[in-house]
């Protein structure tokens, strides 16, 4: 009994020590933003280009923001779940969304889901990459034009793997189909990884994706790049024409940006935008983004906000036309 009592007292003493130390920890409420870590929500799965870019950029956050940025993955519904979460979060700058064209423009414009420029405001754009259309190298066509001929000769035979409804692969494919009048099966996969796996395994014939994921397979000869959906050719694929060169007027620039809940005070937005600008100029970040095969294309809050709004409105029109 005596021994037990001693033990208990020891515990109590230990507790008091911990309490004392804990009490000294800085808990004061400061006026200055940010006083605690900022959460950046990525509404899509791990390992994608958004995830990689966000992690590269935020890795140096503490040097320029004074607080770390915690990257949190909230995938689901093609980005809708994470976007809705951020739109509902307190507009204090502590919860941000890593925006992408798919869930921040297309989904709200076409389907009325997820959250667009009506519910979120722009902090800044980091960069963008174009969609690249690829096919299995066993397919009997080598260019976009030949693919279109093949699809016309064999209606409903081609299987196209998209990376989620209205995503980086789905939207441009729907545009190509609409413009050229071909017919093919369009199968939904939950992200770029599974769609790529399906094409490599021969369960689908074509997919669209970003260069960082596709390049190793294009180099190894398993996949053949048919077209780049940009206004200019891709630096690392100088031989692959743009869709416009091949006579199909489709471009799809997947941008990556930082967005905040609507109502976030302007000084906080400015502070964040400045910190992100400095982060994207950090040498280590620049070299990491370079290794991903991308470059920094920073755009400030006002300029990007305008670009985003225009894209959103034009996709709204497009959605109405495509759904017919």
């Amino acid at each position: 009994m005596n021994k037990r009592f001693c033990l208990t007292m020891m515990w109590v003493g230990l507790l008091m020590c911990i309490c004392a130390v804990g009490g000294m920890a800085p808990t004061a409420v400061a006026e200055e933003f940010p006083t605690k870590p900022v959460t950046l929500i990525i509404p899509v799965g791990a390992g994608g280009s958004h995830d990689l870019t966000a992690r590269a950029v935020t890795s140096v956050a503490i040097n320029y923001l004074g607080q770390p940025i915690i990257v949190q993955l909230k995938p689901g519904g093609g980005g809708a779940i994470g976007s809705e979460l951020v739109a509902k979060a307190a507009p204090d700058g502590y919860t941000l969304l890593f925006g992408g064209m798919g869930w921040s423009s297309t989904l709200p414009a076409v389907e009325g889901r997820s959250k667009g420029p009506d519910d979120l405001i722009a902090v800044c754009r980091i960069n963008y990459s174009p969609t690249i259309i690829v096919a299995r190298s066993e397919m009997p066509f080598k260019t976009l034009k030949e693919m279109l001929q093949y699809a016309k000769a064999n209606p409903e035979k081609l299987i196209y793997a998209n990376t989620g409804p209205w995503g980086q692969a789905d939207l441009p494919w729907k545009m190509i189909v609409k413009q050229t009048g071909i017919s093919a099966k369009n199968v939904p996969y939950d992200g770029g990884g599974p769609a790529l796996l399906a094409v490599l395994g021969g369960h689908a014939d074509m997919t669209g994706g970003l260069i960082s994921a596709l390049l190793p397979h294009i180099k190894s000869g398993k996949l053949r790049a048919l077209a780049v959906l940009d206004d200019k050719r891709e630096k690392e694929l100088p031989d692959v024409p743009t869709a416009k060169e091949e006579g199909v007027n489709v471009a799809n620039l997947m941008w990556r940006s930082v967005l905040a809940p609507k109502g976030t005070p302007r000084p906080v937005i400015d502070k964040l935008a400045l910190a992100f600008k400095k982060m994207t100029e950090d040498k280590s970040v620049v070299s990491m983004i370079d290794k991903l095969g991308d470059e920094i294309q920073y755009m400030g809050p006002d300029e990007f906000g305008k670009f985003w709004r225009e894209e959103f409105e034009s996709q709204k029109e497009l959605g109405k036309a495509l759904k017919k």
Binding site: G47, R55, S212, H217, K219, K291
Partner: peptide
């Protein structure tokens, strides 16, 4: 990926 190594067939 951050180290510039692309996991894949190569």
């Amino acid at each position: 990926m951050i180290h510039g190594i692309r996991p894949g067939p190569l």
